[in-house]
Design a protein around this nucleic acid. Sequence first.
DNA 1: GTTATTGCAAATGATTTGCACAAGG
DNA 2: CCTTGTGCAAATCATTTGCAATAAC
Lengths: 165, 165
Amino acid sequence: MDSGIKERLDEFIRRKGLRRTVQREQIVDIVFSKDEHFTADELFGRVRKVDGETSRATVYRTLALLVEADLLRQIDLGESQITYDPNFLEKPSHNHLVCIDCGNIVEFEDGNVDIQTDCVTRRLGFRTIRQSIKIEASCEQLRLNGRCQNLIDSRLSGKRLRRKR
Amino acid sequence: MDSGIKERLDEFIRRKGLRRTVQREQIVDIVFSKDEHFTADELFGRVRKVDGETSRATVYRTLALLVEADLLRQIDLGESQITYDPNFLEKPSHNHLVCIDCGNIVEFEDGNVDIQTDCVTRRLGFRTIRQSIKIEASCEQLRLNGRCQNLIDSRLSGKRLRRKR
DNA sequence: GTTATTGCAAATGATTTGCACAAGG
DNA sequence: CCTTGTGCAAATCATTTGCAATAAC
């Protein structure tokens, strides 16, 4: 975990007159221990393994806190549950490609895309605050070779596949 | 309303072995009578004005039907309710800019953006199926002049402003 | 001590679903 | 007829909230 996160959270907590608690510490540790996306419920599961007392409500409230502090971002993958992405600190303007074959999510950063969209924004008379791009795509490997390395990798790593809402 | 819609729906209904009903006819007429985005509940309100019998369930079921037939699309504006966009038939690859000042939603189509993102997609080893871009932006007019024509327009037209989830 | 935070359980709110009856083909 | 569609009310499910007890500071 990037060591700056705790400091930024402490700063946010101080500025807002809030308090440091063991639950918040634990949840933050878990959220930023991996670079994987997660839902509130998945996080609750991981938190419960560490501390069997922490409540679902506290998990939700801490997620809202982290989003407000701009340490964590909600992303839309078209599922019924909100997905959280802990990687915006490292990759501030990344976007997501979702493979419709295997459900894998690929993060990408591309300056040219950012420039193009910002150009459109200015042409329309606005100033970009934030943008999100979701690309749904099919796997070229799977189409050509009948198999897809991403799919194999995700099976091996046990990554969560995409569910429809 | 584009006259092709009814035909495409009929074709879909025939192909699937489904049935034409008065409720579906009415809902489709209402959905495509304007180019405005709407939620299921807003649509239900409009439908009820025409036919006081139609149920909320039928509205939801017909929306799902239209989405499946690819006549209507769900878009994510970060609200708790799903937003439906009836304009993809006319503008097949448009995207959305949301003004954080006034909540206005501006649709735009831009070939260069599409080319850039498709380029990224191919570089990653995928083939684009569909993409959606959401730009959150502030109004330059408001920043410079202290007022925003979009905001004034939306007040005048009584357009729905954005709610947070 | 004062105020924020927590856990619990209940509430919320959008959407979905089971079922008996209605209606399309 | 036979099956799909509808309306109703109940169910679902993620998320939020009220409240009394607890813990920061």
